[in-house]
Write a protein that binds this DNA or RNA. Structure first.
Lengths: 140, 140
DNA sequence: GCGTTATCCTTCGTATACAAACCAAGTTAG
DNA sequence: CTAACTTGGTTTGTATACGAAGGATAACGC
């Protein structure tokens, strides 16, 4: 990712975009062997927190646009990581469940995310790590 | 953008993605009246720092993939914000220049970026702002 | 009930991202 | 000098993002 040219103005938006790019890229590389994208992994983690959640609630939890999540769910369905079931009470609602394929890799995939986070923050001291996360939370 | 659900694990990658989403979205809204996207604006700022830069060097400066920058330049060309000129010394090289249309809006667009950054960080104290930027820089 | 609204999700259009394949123009080794 | 390699850009294919419009299904009001 190299280093940021000092000529680029003191622009937080730019710094944030590049920090995100780096984090995203590192995790993406770790996920490649599983044929999962970052968003697909995130959706799986969301479902492990709450099986049977609706697509709308999952979108809120993960702060994803419903138009975006729609495509992600399609691809997770095709690759058999999740199941969709129409709610019997309300025909508009989709309830989402993970499959056995996902369950078999659950611990592994969660550990992968943990290690990706550690790697990302490895140049920070413990205090800096805590601080950085707090600032990011406050920003959102 | 609402707030981040505490159930989502203590995941920096996620926090970073959402912070970026927020920053990007806010700036995007400010740019809409100009029919510029965030990346297009970034390229203009890059060119104002160094007119006549090559596409490859601009990509390095802005840390953008060459495949990505190629499309951005096309659209900036179509909307007449920039000019492309083939380097007479090396036929592979494209040199990039801004147009008069861009020059007329230069101060306004730079001020817009500054105010977008201020807005983004408005909930932080001055110390937090400085710290946050330092941490982002260190990460990259 | 039945039309008006609201909700859930999909589809479409545009703009990133970025890997991979490709072409064209230069450079270099033997 | 020519084959091999390198470099600068474009193109293609897949996957986000997200506004906007559309279709299906409920819920509500009178």
């Amino acid at each position: 990712m190299s280093q940021i040219n000092p000529n680029i103005p003191d622009c937080t938006i730019f710094l944030l975009a590049k920090a995100y790019q780096k984090a995203h890229g590192q995790f993406k590389a770790k996920l490649r062997p599983y044929n999962l994208t970052n968003l697909q992994h995130l959706v799986l983690e969301g479902l492990w927190l709450e099986e049977g959640v609706t697509a709308a609630d999952l979108g809120k939890l993960l702060i994803m646009d419903k138009a975006t999540i729609s495509g992600v769910l399609d691809r997770l369905l095709d690759s058999e990581w999740i199941r969709k079931e129409t709610d019997p009470e309300d025909g508009r609602v989709l309830r989402l469940y993970t499959t056995k394929k996902a369950a078999a890799l659950k611990e592994e995939l969660i550990a992968l995310r943990v290690s990706a986070n550690e790697e990302l923050l490895s140049s920070f001291s413990h205090e800096e790590q805590v601080l950085f996360k707090r600032l990011l939370r406050d920003l959102a």
